[in-house]
């Protein structure tokens, strides 16, 4: 199978729990990459810490498993050092929006050509079920034994506000859409961000009576709607459902960060420069 060349088959099986959605995300990503015309040898995949962080170990590219929250910052260095590389970040909701939230908004602000796939299972899974900035209010977590009083981010809006030029949201109940979103994100020149709903039946589901993985996928489907349909909804209904699909796409390769830096190089080499 062609997709196998993008996996380190000898590192499987993966460590994710039965029923976890992360494997679906990885699967959809590999299918998207297979359809893209990107060079495997010129692609670096970078992750942080947590369940999502382990994705890099299974992918057959140059892979960098960094410190907690910092994947995007490492990726920024890799991309700037060699703009010819395709740089992909895989991060989680804790990794990418709590400890790494600052790097997320600043990479979006720079509009640097990274593809960020955020595995959002709404919980810190690897450490046993503490609440993250993506855990909805009133949910239960080991560090919110009386219910969560924190508000969660609307990530798409956060990244849009920060200046991201490609923003999409998908969910593991629809892997084919996930694949389409990843493919579009990989092709986008600029900062692209795909929030990917994933289910965690073990650390999230059990605390919140969400049922097994199948039940959780059904809930995903119930709570989401295609972006085009969502736009037709009343303001009230919009607040109850998450739109899925490409939510924003601005095609302006000239505004990409490494492209703009090239102009700085040209400026610095003009006569009479500093």
């Amino acid at each position: 199978m062609e997709t196998e060349k993008y996996l380190r088959m000898d590192k499987l099986p993966h460590i994710w729990c039965p029923g976890c959605g992360h494997g679906t995300i990885l699967n959809s990503f590999i299918r998207a990459f297979t359809e893209s015309d990107l060079d495997q040898d010129k692609t670096v995949v970078i992750s942080g810490i947590g369940c999502s962080g382990r994705a890099t170990g299974y992918l057959n590219f140059d892979t960098l498993h960094t410190t907690h929250g910092r994947a995007i910052a490492f990726a920024t260095g890799v991309k700037m050092a060699n703009p010819n590389l395709n740089v992909i970040v895989m991060t989680g909701d804790g990794d990418g929006t709590a400890i790494g939230g600052n790097h997320l908004i600043h990479a979006a602000r720079r509009n640097i050509d990274l593809t960020v796939i955020l595995f959002n299972n709404q919980i810190y899974g690897m450490t046993g079920g503490q609440f993250s900035p993506m855990t909805p209010p009133s949910d239960m977590a080991t560090t919110a034994p009386y219910g969560n009083i924190d508000q969660n981010f609307d990530l798409a809006q956060l990244v849009e506000g920060a200046g991201g030029t490609f923003i999409a949201r998908g969910a593991t109940f629809d892997p084919r859409q996930l694949k389409r979103l990843y493919l579009a994100a990989l092709k986008h020149k600029g900062f692209s961000f795909v929030e990917s709903f994933s289910q965690c039946p073990v650390s999230y589901g059990r605390q919140n009576g969400s049922g097994d993985a199948v039940e959780m996928l059904k809930s995903q489907k119930k709570n989401t709607v295609d972006f085009k349909k969502w736009q037709q909804l009343s303001t009230e209904k919009k607040q109850l459902l998450y739109p899925l699909g490409i939510l924003k796409e601005v095609d302006s390769p000239e505004s990409e960060y490494t492209v703009r830096y090239k102009k700085i190089i040209a400026k610095a080499n003009q006569e009479g420069a500093l």
């Binding site: 960094t66 910052a73 920024t76 260095g77 790097h103």
Partner: peptide
Amino acid sequence: AAVVGASLAG
């Protein structure tokens, strides 16, 4: 972090 990334990129 960026400096480590750049170093790995050569």
